[in-house]
Design a protein around this nucleic acid. Structure first.
Length: 281
DNA sequence: ACTATTTCCTGGATGC
DNA sequence: TGCATCCAGGAAATAG
């Protein structure tokens, strides 16, 4: 389940491999449910465009595109191809004669002959394009704050006064974009805060600690190439290693790494949440 | 304006 | 062994 560190790893890998390439053609599967834009729009924006860079915005992978000037007086078109991997989405860079795996929903053919394939068994992922200058010069951005860029004061403001459990607030992409279930649990453990605590019950000090914990966890995870659980692999097919550093996520019943109390698992907003009843208050 | 709950989707794990 | 059921969870939609 790709969250910020996994998406960052994938985006960096893709950038290294395909930045500068021109898109020749696009194939979309028969039943293109995982599309946020219409097939026509996607083809129109992608075909003939050059991939200037591949980057991450929240949990989205953004391909910044530049179109060739077509006809006199036409301005160079810009656009973005935006991919959300959902739970099980993958972007593969493949050679054209390699086997197309099941659940392949899109194939983007590049001028070099290679292909970028979007594969997603569970179909929670989404593809979209954004056009021209409508988004301004900055291009696509995630709806909430980037956790690695937000400063402490701003972070505190985001959560203060909210009645919802802090875990739910961390998962709310409109507040903070990029934190998912794993890193929410890991961050709360490091900050010593129980996931069910209401955000409004936390002091500024708590929230500052949480802000630091979120940034540390995300940065360490990026450094290790993300967490490989289920079948996550990056753009090169490599696994990440941050799952070895998980202190609470997926460790129900196991001893806490700090105090040896058994880790508890509860359900908040329909998601499993893991914490140490002794270390987290 | 917020918050909580439901829905989508399929592979893998579990249970009888 | 086989079949049914459950579970994972991001984010949009729906309900309160």
């Amino acid at each position: 389940m790709p969250e910020l560190p996994e998406v960052e790893t994938i985006a960096r890998g893709l950038h290294k491999r395909i930045a500068g390439e021109r898109i020749q053609s696009v194939w979309l599967s028969e039943k293109p449910e995982p599309l946020k834009s219409s097939p026509v729009q996607i083809v129109r924006v992608l075909e003939g465009s050059r991939i200037v860079q591949v980057r991450r915005a929240g949990k989205h992978i953004v391909f910044d595109l530049e179109r060739k000037v077509r006809g006199a007086g036409a301005e160079a078109g810009r656009g973005q191809w935006v991919v959300h991997l959902g739970m099980t989405g993958r972007l593969q860079v493949a050679l054209p004669d390699s086997e197309v795996s099941r659940h392949t929903h899109a194939i983007v053919k590049l001028a070099s002959g290679r292909e970028v394939r979007f594969v997603d068994p569970r179909r929670f992922g989404r593809l979209a394009v954004t056009g021209d200058s409508s988004e301004g010069t900055r291009g696509f951005t995630a709806p909430g704050d980037e956790p690695l860029e937000s400063r402490s004061e701003r972070f505190v403001e985001l959560f203060r006064g909210r009645k919802t459990p802090i875990k739910s607030a961390l998962l709310n992409q409109k507040l903070l974009s990029g934190v998912g279930n794993i890193y929410a649990d890991e961050s709360l453990f490091r900050a010593g805060i129980r996931p069910r605590r209401r955000a409004c019950s936390l002091t500024k000090e708590h929230l500052r600690n949480l802000h630091r914990a979120v940034q540390e966890v995300l940065q360490e995870a990026i450094a290790l190439g993300g967490s490989s659980i289920s079948d996550y692999v990056d753009a090169e097919g490599n696994e990440g290693f941050f799952q070895l550093q998980h202190r609470v996520y997926g460790r129900e019943g196991e001893p806490c790494s700090v105090c040896t109390s058994p880790i508890k698992r509860i359900v908040i907003a329909g998601r499993s949440s893991h914490y140490c009843p002794h270390c987290q208050k």
